[in-house]
Amino acid sequence: MIIQMWMLSLMIVFVGGGVLWDCRLSRQLYCAPLPRPYRDRPSQLAGWKRNCSDEVIVKADDLLRILREAFSFNPDDRYQCASSDRIMAVQRAC
């Protein structure tokens, strides 16, 4: 009985530690994965810089931040969306 309680406590510590570590890395408690069409492609930051001016990139970064927060995506994945992607297409893919 004592060994079972000890093992259960150890599992709780490891799972809780994993959740806290993920929260620390992503700065939010839960991150949903990007839909497959966006997840499988490389970063689109070069395309954003090639197609847009610096002022537009600043506004686009704000838009991508809002999109990331709305769909609970990982902050590092925000440039997986290209400048030609439609927000409704991302929403349908989710």
Rank of each mutant, 00 (worst) to 15 (best):
M1N: 15
M1Q: 15
I2H: 15
I2E: 13
I3S: 13
I3Q: 14
Q4K: 15
Q4L: 14
M5C: 14
M5D: 13
W6K: 13
L8F: 10
L8S: 12
S9V: 09
L10R: 10
M11Q: 14
M11E: 14
M11G: 13
I12T: 13
I12P: 04
I12S: 12
V13M: 11
F14T: 15
F14W: 11
V15A: 09
G16N: 01
G17D: 00
G17K: 02
G17H: 00
G17A: 03
V19R: 03
L20K: 07
W21S: 05
W21K: 06
W21H: 08
D22A: 15
C23Q: 14
R24H: 12
R24G: 07
L25E: 03
L25T: 00
L25F: 01
S26H: 07
S26N: 09
S26M: 08
S26Q: 06
Q28T: 05
L29I: 10
L29R: 09
Y30D: 05
Y30G: 08
Y30I: 15
Y30K: 13
Y30R: 14
A32F: 09
A32T: 09
P33F: 02
L34T: 00
L34C: 03
L34Q: 02
P35V: 08
P35A: 07
R36I: 15
R36P: 12
P37G: 07
P37D: 06
Y38A: 02
R39Q: 12
R39M: 08
D40T: 11
D40C: 09
R41I: 06
R41P: 00
R41E: 01
S43C: 10
Q44Y: 03
L45Q: 05
W48G: 02
R50H: 11
R50P: 08
R50E: 07
N51H: 11
N51T: 12
N51A: 15
S53G: 13
S53M: 04
D54Q: 10
I57D: 00
I57Y: 00
V58K: 10
K59M: 08
A60N: 05
A60W: 01
A60G: 12
D61L: 06
D61W: 03
D62H: 06
D62C: 05
L63C: 03
L64A: 00
R65M: 11
R65P: 02
R65A: 12
L67P: 00
R68S: 06
R68Q: 08
R68F: 00
E69R: 04
E69C: 04
A70C: 10
A70E: 07
A70Y: 04
A70P: 01
S72D: 05
S72F: 04
S72A: 10
F73L: 01
N74D: 08
N74Q: 09
N74V: 09
N74T: 06
N74A: 13
P75K: 11
D76L: 15
D76V: 14
D77R: 01
Y79W: 11
Y79M: 01
Y79H: 03
Y79Q: 00
A82F: 04
S83E: 06
S84Y: 09
S84H: 11
S84I: 10
D85R: 01
D85S: 02
R86D: 08
R86E: 08
I87T: 08
I87W: 05
I87S: 06
V90N: 02
V90Q: 02
V90I: 15
V90G: 03
Q91E: 07
Q91K: 15
R92E: 08
R92P: 00
R92W: 07
A93E: 05
C94H: 04
C94A: 13
C94N: 05
